[in-house]
Structures are given as C-alpha cells and as structure tokens.
Amino acid sequence: MTDAETIHHPGYRQPRFLPAGDAALSVELGDAIDETINARVVALEEALAARHVAGVIETVPTYRSLLVLFDPLVATHAGIAAAVRELWPPPERAAGARRLWRVPVCYGGEMGADLDFVARAHDLTTDEVVALHTAPTYRVYMIGFAPGFAYLGGLDERLVTSRREVPRPKTPPGSISIGGRQAAVSPPMEVPSGWHLLGRTAARSYDPRREQPFLFGPGDLICFHAVDAAGHAALIRAAEAGEEIVAPEEAGGAPSGATS
C-alpha cells in the first residue's frame, strides 16, 4: 500500500464488496477502527439512501463497513456495487451537521462496580478516572449488539483497559462502560458484557414509547458529565415518566478527543 491516498487516508482507495448471502452485500471501506473510515461509512450510507436504489431494504453502518440488505427478487450484488461505485468517494458530511449529546453519569459505588478496579489498574484515584472519562468528546462509531447500544471512540489513552476475563451475563441498564480502547453507553436494559462498568446514566438510548425510540446514531458526538446519586435518581424518575432528559445540540468542528 504505497500509493498517495493510502498515506493520507487510512481507508481503502476503493471499497471492497463482500457478498453476505443472496440478500446482502458488505461494503468494506477500511481495516481499522478509525474516525475517517467511519465517517466515510456514515457518508456512504447517506449518499446511498438519497439515491433510492431499487430493492435496497436497509443498511447497517458499522466501524468500517456498510452492510446493504436487499431484495434478491429486485436487486443483485453487482447492481448494488455499481451504485456504490458511482457514489464513490462519498461527500464528507459538514461538521456543523453533527449532533452533540451531553450525557449525565452517576459514577462508582453500586452504579459503577468497576470504577475502583479501573483506578487501581492505572494507579489513579477514582476522581481522576472520572475526570479522564468526562474530559473527551467521544464519537459514536456504531450502534449494535443490543437496541441502542452505542460503541464510542475517543477514550483517553490512560484509561485503556483490557476487557474482563469473565464477562458478566448481565450488566445494569444504562451502564457506562469501557473495554480496550472503546467506551460504550448501554440501553435501559440488562445486557451481557465483558467491559468495565464505570457508572450508569438515566438517559434512555432506546425507549419504544418515544416517537424517536433511539437517541444516538453513528457520527454523533457524546460528552459525559458526572451527577450525584440524588441527581441521578431524579433523572431516572423524569426519564421513566417519559421526559426527555437529554437533547442533541448542533456541534461544529472536529471532536477534541475522538482520534484513535
């Protein structure tokens, strides 16, 4: 890989088209967890949606791939690939179009069972861990694994922690966790996880009662801020009553901490 573009761009020069059965095509844009590649995935998804390709049923953006599910009675792998090639490279989304979410977190104690462990593992105080975790602006790379479960990039190097040897079969709803170089926001339901639990949020990333059941999407930005137990309990009550306790802001410019 010596050509000019790969030096400046970590993604592939051309997408790789990988068939996923008779009804899907995986469009792979790179081989790394990387903000630039992920931004291309998001941009490609938007461009493809705007194109209204016949037979496309839905698309699933992930770190470095866009999965295109299609109706094999209408479309073909080759037809989808041709549509993607015509859109390549997709236009970068304007920075001002990003959404920024400020997410309240109650850290430590029974809310974050692994805060002490993470602090000890890095020779930090728990306050320092909270400070390091609330400082960056994270990027949502993808939603997957469970309804509204958000995978975030941008974790401070000093908090990079290998996942637990023994995953927990259940973690509390709204868990705020870290694993390896990644961070995550859990939906308001119990999910299995091998990541370290730092705290919990009252924000409901998935709530089928809302007109918009999901909060976060790929390319969104997230900042965490600490709230105390009383504040958390009040937010939980408000959220359960159907109140929207977080709302997106328009964010400009590049995220400060969201480099990998």
Partner: peptide
C-alpha cells in the same frame, strides 16, 4: 474482526 453487520444465515 472489527465488528460488522450480521444477516440471517451468517
């Protein structure tokens, strides 16, 4: 691998 989408039958 880096997590990606799964289809029916993967």
């Amino acid at each position: 691998i880096i997590s990606d989408g799964i289809v029916n039958g993967s």
